[in-house]
Design a protein around this nucleic acid. Structure first.
Lengths: 196, 196
DNA sequence: GACCATACGGAACGATGTCCCGTTTAGCAA
DNA sequence: TTGCTAAACGGGACATCGTTCCGTATGGTC
């Protein structure tokens, strides 16, 4: 809920011009720093890159999780929307599932440390967990249900468990040439298959 | 190399009696604290539990990884030795592989945070990574080779990659009732199977 | 031009890993 | 037994990081 000012709340007063400018600056700076130093880069680095004080970050984004959410919201939405689309354009529901997981993995492994912080038990990241899960678990559930209904996979694995597993497989995948998260995620999905 | 005094090095002088006593005390204290607070408990807590200063820990165990290794060495050894034994007593190599992975998962999920720190990219844990990998990867390789030779599984997944995947799946498994690392690891292994 | 709520910057605080330095003590020899 | 020295110790010092507080600056408005 840190977009410029879509007035959802009651009597949401418009932000001051400098505040709106700073929020945009911060998002850009955070995105840049995330690329080079990972999502757990020091807050001071982001503030410095944006040319603001550290407190300004916390004023706009109460927790670091809120900042991460704001930075990646567009891509998460795109991933969520790809689910139903894949279900329509793929030969079988299982193929759609495979492709969607591949999208999800690609998203995670290209964001340094995002998978790790997604799994972090650190309190304060609850908002991040909740957002990802709320947005993506229903999509995954639908894909799983479709594949199960078609008799392609077993039906006893909840989507949330599968997604956490895939998320975990992506941890640390970006800097180890001997570790291919995509392949392992593919193995995990393959493990769902029922003998024909 | 933090055992009391097996003199491998050249002219390894024997430790003083109090030093040997403190090392034992530290190991016990660390083991106790690891159980209650996880392997990433503050160093100060361990020192307090042992009734020594923080510097004493670093003197005996240059990095936290060395302390963790020392605490769990016995169990890692047991896991490593179970590999060949399972291969002999199981009906098929694939069954042995399944059982061994199950042992590995059990070991990880019962040690709070061990899987996470095993995957940590934090420098200073290199020794921990190296120890686990050096000790267990050859065992896993042998199991994989045997199963592949029997035509039960595909042969293109390196043991190290599989173990890292399983390790990742175990992250955060101990405190989430909706997450069953054993089941997911089983899925991953099942994904290796070749159609008959 | 003046007012004030809003927003800002940077210092301050608490937690944690790590290192340094002055002090104590185990082991040994006279 | 006594005295010496290297080994070992303890705890405070330092650096880093997340987070909050407070005095100051400024945008929007009358």
């Amino acid at each position: 809920m840190n977009d410029s000012d879509r007035g959802a709340g009651p009597a949401a007063r418009p932000k001051r011009a400098d505040a709106r400018r700073n929020e945009k600056t911060l998002l850009d700076a955070a995105a840049a720093v995330f690329v080079t130093s990972g999502v757990d880069a020091p807050v001071r680095d982001i503030a410095a890159k944006a040319g603001v004080g550290t407190a300004t970050i916390y004023r706009h984004f109460p927790t670091r999780a809120d900042l991460i959410i704001a930075v990646y919201r567009h891509q998460v939405e795109a991933c969520a929307e790809a689910g139903p689309a894949l279900l329509e354009t793929s030969a079988t529901p299982f193929t759609a599932l495979e492709r969607w997981i591949s999208l999800f993995v690609d998203f995670l492994v290209t964001k340094h440390g995002l998978a790790a912080v997604l799994r972090s038990d650190d309190a304060g990241f609850d908002a991040l967990h909740a957002y990802f899960l709320d947005r993506l678990v229903p999509v995954c559930t639908r894909l799983l249900d479709a594949a199960a209904a078609a008799g392609e996979i077993r039906a006893d694995i909840p989507a949330i468990e599968l997604m956490r597993g895939v998320g975990n497989l992506c941890i640390g995948a970006e800097r180890d040439p001997h570790y291919d998260a995509r392949r392992l995620a593919g193995l995990l999905i393959a493990g769902l298959r029922l003998p024909r």
